[in-house]
Every structure is written in C-alpha cells, then in structure tokens.
Write a protein that binds this DNA or RNA. Structure first.
Length: 792
DNA sequence: GTGTAATGCTATTGG
DNA sequence: AGCATTACAC
C-alpha cells in the first residue's frame, strides 16, 4: 500500500461515499465537488479491502477518463493490479464483450463498427435503391430516428408495429421510416457491421437471450460503478440494471444539473428514478466545490436556479471570492475573436500565466474559426479539440477502410470507399450492380465478388478482370492478418493499394499534409506493434500485435482520447460539450447570443431550453479563477452578416457577479459601419425580476460610445494582410492592406515567397503586382489574396 | 469512367 | 463561405 492514509484525503461526505461499498449507492455530485476523486478512491478502497480487480466494472464517459483513473488508482494502491479493472466507456467495454460473444447472436467476432459517416452513407444507398427522395428522408434525420429507436431498445419489427411511431412518421410525411430502419439493420448485419447504438442494443439482446451469458457477467462484475449517470440512455440503463441485479453493488455518480445529452437519448429519469429501482439505496451528496471561486460558484447557482426540474442541492465553496465575471461585447465575430485573444494576451502578461491555463468554449464548432484567426495574429499557440478529428480525415479513413476490408471483406461501406480508390476503373455503376445483385440473391457482397461466374453475370469482361485483381489483393492482405505485425501489414497495404503513390503525386500543401497524416497514422501503428499486449489475465506479454487488433482498438476512439497532448502549453478551444469534466483557471465562453446560445432549435420547448441552460452551467463551472463571457452584435452565418441579440443567459446571472468591460449595458447599441437590419435595441429585454432596476448600478452614458477596444499589437513580421474569406473589412485587415508597399517581401499560399513590385487602386479593390520566384509576375487583388508580409 | 463546372446545402451538441 | 453533390463534357 503506497498511501495507507488515503481516506484522510477526503472530506466527510466524500469519505462516506467511498466507504459505503456494499449495496446500491447514488452519489449526487455538484460541479467541481471531487466526483472523479470519489470514484477513484472508491475503487482503490475496494481493492484495498481485497476485492479482485477482475470483479470491478467501471463505466466512464471517455476512455481518457478511464485511463486517468486507472493511473491514479495505481498511484494510490501502489501496484499494477489496477490494470485488471474493467474500465472504459459503455461502448468500448461492451464492444469488447461482444467480440467474445458475437457468434451467439449471429455476428462474426471480427465485426466492423460503423461510424456516423458509414451509417449515413448506407442510408443514402438504401434511399437511392428505393427511389426515395433524400430531401424528404434526410440521411442525418433518418439516422437519428433509428438511433433514438435503438437507444430505447425498439427493434425495426417493434417500430413498424408501434402506433406512436407510425403516426409520428405519417404526419411528418415519412411513412417509410420503419422499412428503411429494417433494411438498414439487415444491411449492417449482412456486412458484419454494428453501428454505435448496435453495440448497446446487441449487448441487450445477448443478455436477454442467453441467460448463461448474463449469469457469467453478473458474477464477473460484482461491483459496478457508473460515472456521468445523468447522461445514460435507456439501453445503457437496462444493461446496468441487469448486470447489477445479482449483487446490487451498484454505484452511480452524476449531477442532474450537468445533463447535456438528452438530445442523443440520455434520460435524466435514470438518475431521478434510481431510488425507485433500489429502495434500500444510500444517497450521498457532494456539495462542496473545490474548483472555482465564490463568484463563479454563486453565479452558476444563480443561472441554474432558473431551471424548474432539478434535484435539491446547494453547491458552495470555501475558495476565495475571486474576480467578477467579465462581460465583453464585440461588433462582429472577428472582433469577438480579437477581443478574446487580446484579453488572453493581457491576462497572461499581467498575471504571468501559461497559455494552457486558458480555454475558449463555444456552442458550435463553426465558431472556432474567428477565435483561431485572432489567436494566430497574436502568435498565441492553441489547440482545437473536436472538429475534424484525426480519424475522420479522408486519407485516414481511406487507409483504414483497406484495413477494415482485409479484416471483414463483407464490410460494404469500406468496400464502397476504396474499391475505386485509387482509381482502378471500377466505377459507381459497377458497384451498384454488385450490391444490387447481392441483395437480390440474398448473398453477401464478397460472395459475389469472389465468384467469377457471378461477377460475369453482372458486369462486362473488362470490369470483371479489374474486380478479380482487386479481390486477389484484398485476399492477400487478409491472409497476412495473423502472420504479420500490424505495422508490417499496414505498410504493405499503404504501398500495394497505391494510396501512398496517389497522395505523393499531390504536391499542393494540402496534399503534402495528407501524406504527413498517413505518416502519423503509420507511426501510431508502429508504436502499437511494439507495445505489449495484455493476455486474458491482464498480464503484459510480448506477442505479435496484429492489424485487426489495432483497427478494433481505434474504432471507438474519440478526439477526447488523443493521448499525451495535454502537456502542451497551448490555449484550448472546444465546444462546451467536449469541455465536460475538464477545468481551466481562465475560461472564455463566447457567442452568448440569442439563437446561438441558447440555440435557435432549443427555443420551442421548456426542456430543450433547460438543457441549454445546463450547458451554460457546465461552461461556467469549468472556470477556476475567472470567467469571461462575450457576445457580438453581428455575426456571419452562412455567408451573411446577421444581427444578434445578447443571450438571455446573461440576464439570468445575478448581476452582482458581473462586470461589463468597455461598454455600458444600458447604453444604446453602438452604430457601426456594417449594413444590416438594426434590431430593436431599445427593447433589449428589461430585467424581468419585477423591481425594474436590475441594471441601475450601471450608470448610463449619454452618448453611444464605440467599445473601448484597442486593436492588438500585431507582431510586425507576420502581418496577415487579409483573408480571402470575407468581402467585408475588419479594421485590422484594412490597415494591413494599407501598409502594403512595393519592395516588401510577401508570402502567398500558393505562389510562395515574392516581392511586391507595385501597389495600385483604392481600398476595396486595391491591387498589387508581385513577382514570385519560379512562378513569375502576378496581379493580385488584395481583398482575396492571402498575403503575408515577411519583410517590410 | 473520369474530370471539371455549376449548383445547392449547410451550422447544434457526440460515442 | 465552404463543402458536397450533381451535371455535363470528354
């Protein structure tokens, strides 16, 4: 035992929650109350009491959280026993179990896991084959209906007989959703593929239809812990209830105030009804916040009190008072970025902070662009979490599709992706014919492809020969799965398939970047190949690590799982959803505008709006020392400048915790140079708390002042003259364009380094003549050319 | 079957 | 504005 006094590191309610190990336990944990700490210590305590690690199942929200917990547990108990714990997300833990048991429910053990893109692509194929209009049956929407059904354990058969579903789909003009759902499921099954929801649905099928399997896992998992229980859906709930029903050593941890995934089927009722499921339940409340200042805790409480549905709980803190929350207003989204970047810069300098102590949180991924540009201009390093994750990039998915097909040749989506990439003359029509033939004859796609007779029935001789050589190639990969290491085979596939050749022919910066991404993937595979594998007893052993292991490992990774990047000293940019569970000394929540946050789509129902409010609560409670809230009075949305009103959430915060920087809340909206419909600023909502003077402490200024915003100091050697993106000028851009003079050395994205020979014209249409080495003389419209001044 | 130009759609949130 | 799909020419 490395740390025998570990219980002393907990406060009273934390310790009680840790020590109550037997029977059902619910822990209601306020934001920043040490929830992870309790879970970690609880597991350590179980191990310390002699419980075998193999008998503990701990379900976390991300795999990264599981890894972090495992490490902390090892540090507490001082042994490597923690590696034997079953820990991970619902999806990864039950995918692992399904790999053992798949054949019982008719799946191959090496089943593919379809991601959202695969699912959508399959739905598109089905729509096309059945002559259904993609505009009526939008693939994304169809998928979310299917997903909702699966999360509620509604099979296609049940769906098609469900009167509520039938009338819902009829009245929305999509009566065939049930049929599509059935076809979709059949196709997944025939491809040996499960989508994300199938992993949980099929686990339920397995536990329902095979009592011996259920019994086996009930006995195995004598202690079950579930983190973020407020975000579990019905399907997950049933799995947990079934597994726990033998011993009832079930501990769930959650916070109803932080439930932000109802949109994907999460059900707060799971936490609210837990008491009914387990009458002899022990409930613990963690209400002391250790993370944030008093200002932040109290401000967050004042927001969440606007929600009607919530458990009784008061979060408080002993921490210092802290700075007030700063509210900042910008005129455009770009200026909002500049405001934030500038504020980070000054705070960093004044308080001697590191970049990694700052986070910028937003409601939608699209908002990151303005922030990025502003940070780049100030040379502030940043890292975006989410967005296009590494494994979603085209070139990565292409190579992975080869791996997938080598592992499971019936994987229809992988096949469609690469049968003609790099191009080998097997076009769309051919693929459609083959798939059609497979479905008509009730055969798997690979059965058709493998059989020259069947292929010849469908396509001409020339195409058949091309198919034959493709089949031979994939089959040769397949034969090497068990004999070659992941790295050896991956390298061979990258070469033989022609992907590397195809990419290396592309000399554009994007093309080079794609090759580098492939290289990075290969490095990851090499690392994997050289790592030790756990055997079934959890012992690390050295044996061949194969490509199918690798491919299955990464299928459920998310970018939150990207490892070892958190040590980088960079500002973090992410959506509020992905910020869940994280904390930062300084947090900027940006885009606090009506229709953006709260989102327009949430305004129709009370429960959706309350979820948005909980999301805001989550955002604010990420901050330790100080929070900053920003909004813009106008913003580009799908290419047009639109006018925005400040978010209602700004008014819901008790104003004693707010400080308005550079503007007066009561002052009329400042005029600016942009042309757009001026919204009714005078009717900017008055405080609705009835006393009518909610803002009186802010003195009204007579005139409409420009916000006190000083443009950031831009390093002279890296002036971004303009972005091609906008036809409108920000002050910065215009200024930079004006600075451009002949004789300067500049860099162009495509043409490289060049020298300015001449500048002419008036501002919006100012032109420069630039000589680029190896390219020649070019006339560039500064509004569009991305010119960087390298040497003034 | 392949390459390019034109059109049209989109931007909640994520495993 | 940017991306994906579609239309049409080769």
């Amino acid at each position: 035992m490395k740390n025998p006094n570990y219980l002393n590191e907990l406060n009273e309610s934390q310790r009680e929650a840790v020590e109550c190990t037997e029977g059902p336990v619910m822990i209601i944990a306020g934001a920043g109350s040490g929830k992870t700490r309790v879970l970690t210590y609880r597991i350590a305590h179980l191990l310390n009491k002699g419980v075998d690690a193999f008998n503990i199942l701990s379900l976390t929200f991300t795999n990264k959280a599981a890894r972090a917990m495992r490490n902390r547990i090892e540090a507490i108990i001082g042994s490597s026993e923690a590696r034997n714990l079953w820990m991970g997300t619902f999806h990864s833990v039950f995918a692992k179990i399904l790999r053992f048991e798949a054949e019982k429910i008719g799946y191959p053990n090496n089943f593919t896991i379809y991601d959202t893109d695969d699912s959508k692509s399959l739905i598109k194929s089905i729509l096309k084959e059945n002559n259904l209009d993609e505009k009526v049956y939008k693939p994304g929407m169809v998928l979310s209906r299917i997903s909702a059904a699966k999360s509620s354990l509604i099979s296609p058969q049940v769906y098609m007989n469900d009167s509520e579903a039938i009338s819902h789909d009829r009245s929305s003009g999509k009566p065939l959703l049930g049929e599509i759902y059935l076809k979709y499921n059949t196709r997944c099954f025939n491809s040996g593929a499960m989508d994300f929801d199938d992993l949980l649905f099929n686990t339920n099928v397995l536990l329902r239809d095979f009592p011996d399997v259920l019994y086996k896992y009930q006995n195995k998992f004598k202690y079950i812990l579930v983190d973020e229980y407020q975000d579990t859906n019905f399907s997950q709930y049933v799995i947990v209830r079934k597994l726990a029903s033998l011993f009832e050593n079930i501990c769930v941890v959650g916070d109803d105030a932080q439930s932000i995934y109802a949109f994907r089927g999460a059900n707060i009722q799971n936490i609210l009804n837990f008491e009914k499921d387990y009458p002899d339940l022990h409930t613990f409340k963690l209400e002391q916040n250790y993370r944030s200042s008093k200002v932040i805790v109290n401000a967050a409480n004042s927001i969440i009190s606007n929600n009607k549905e919530q458990l009784d709980k008061t979060v408080w803190t002993h921490n210092e008072e802290g700075e007030k929350i700063k509210v900042m207003r910008a005129l455009t989204d770009n200026e909002e970025g500049a405001l934030v970047a500038n504020s980070i810069f000054t705070t960093k300098m004044n308080q001697q902070r590191r970049d990694k102590e700052f986070a910028i949180l937003y409601r939608t991924n699209a908002q990151s662009r303005a922030m990025e540009e502003a940070l780049r201009k100030l040379n502030i390093p940043y890292r975006i979490y989410g967005g296009l994750s590494f494994y979603k990039r085209k070139e990565i998915k292409d190579l992975l599709a080869y791996f997938r097909l080598a592992i499971n040749p019936n994987d229809e989506e992988a096949l469609k992706r690469i049968i003609n990439y790099p191009m080998r003359g097997i076009g769309q029509t051919t693929v459609e014919k083959i798939i059609l033939a497979a479905n008509e004859q009730g055969k798997r796609i690979w059965e058709i492809l493998e059989n020259p007779l069947l292929v010849n029935n469908v396509v001409g001789g020339g195409t058949a020969a091309k198919i034959d050589s493709f089949v031979t190639m994939i089959r040769s990969f397949n034969l090497e799965l068990k004999t070659k290491s992941a790295y050896e085979l991956a390298e061979r596939i990258a070469m033989t398939s022609g992907i590397l050749r195809d990419l290396s022919e592309d000399k554009t910066p994007e093309g080079v970047n794609r090759t580098e991404n492939i290289q990075e993937l290969m490095n990851g595979i090499r690392e994997f190949s050289e790592s030790e594998a756990p055997d079934e007893n959890g012992e690390a052993i050295t044996r061949l690590r194969t490509l199918d292991e690798f491919t299955q490992d990464i299928a459920l990774l998310t970018d939150a799982d990207e490892k070892d990047k958190e040590n980088l000293d960079t500002v973090s940019l992410m959506t509020i959803h992905s910020a869940k569970g994280l904390e930062f000394p300084f947090v900027y929540v940006v885009g606090l505008e009506e229709n953006l946050f709260p989102s327009q789509l949430s305004l129709n129902s009370r429960s959706d709006l309350e979820e948005e409010r909980r999301l805001f609560y989550v955002a604010l409670t990420r901050a330790e020392k100080q929070a900053f809230l920003t909004y813009s009075t106008s913003r580009y949305r799908w290419g047009n400048l639109t006018s925005c009103e400040p978010s209602r959430f700004l008014e819901e915060i008790d104003s004693q915790y707010l400080e308005f920087e550079g503007f007066d809340r009561k002052a009329p909206k400042p005029s600016n140079d942009h042309q757009y419909n001026d919204m009714d600023w005078e009717n900017f909502r008055r405080p609705s708390n009835g006393n009518g003077n909610g803002y009186s402490q802010y003195k009204a200024k007579p005139a409409a002042p420009k916000p006190a915003y000083t443009p950031p100091v831009v390093p002279k050697n890296l002036v971004n003259v303009n972005k091609a993106s906008s036809a409108s000028f920000t002050a910065d851009d215009a200024e930079a364009i004006m600075k451009l003079q002949s004789g300067m050395q500049v860099e162009h994205e495509k043409f490289g380094i060049g020298k300015v020979l001449n500048v002419e014209g008036m501002l919006p249409n100012k032109k420069a003549t630039v000589f680029f080495e190896g390219v020649g003389q070019k006339q560039l419209l500064l509004k569009f050319a991305k010119l960087k001044i390298i040497n003034p």
